[in-house]
Amino acid sequence: MKNIIENLNKIFDNRIRLGIMSALMVNQDLSFNELKELMQVTDGNLASHLKPLEESGYLLVQKGFIGKKTNTTYSATQLGVKAFKAHLTALEEMIRSTR
């Protein structure tokens, strides 16, 4: 049992970070504002959760402009997709082992 828990990715143990990755699995890219609406969190809160994901190399950040406003979009990197899938597998294994 202990072994299985170790397979869970620490970064994904937060609901918001997990949510961000889930949304980016099914969308090519999402803007900061779209993510904010989806997660229903404040700017600061979202930014603080995006940072560790970005630092781990799970997110690709692209800064752009729409008119004069900044428009930052996020997409999942290959590494991020792999990590997320591994996390899912670990979760499934946990469920299977408890049955």
């Binding site: 889930s22 989806l38 899912l88 979760l91 469920i95």
Partner: peptide, 15 residues
């Protein structure tokens, strides 16, 4: 874990 998987599924649908 089952709740977490539910959360993931829900977020994928919602987004």
């Amino acid at each position: 874990p089952i709740d977490t998987l539910q959360d993931i599924k829900q977020m994928m649908e919602r987004s």
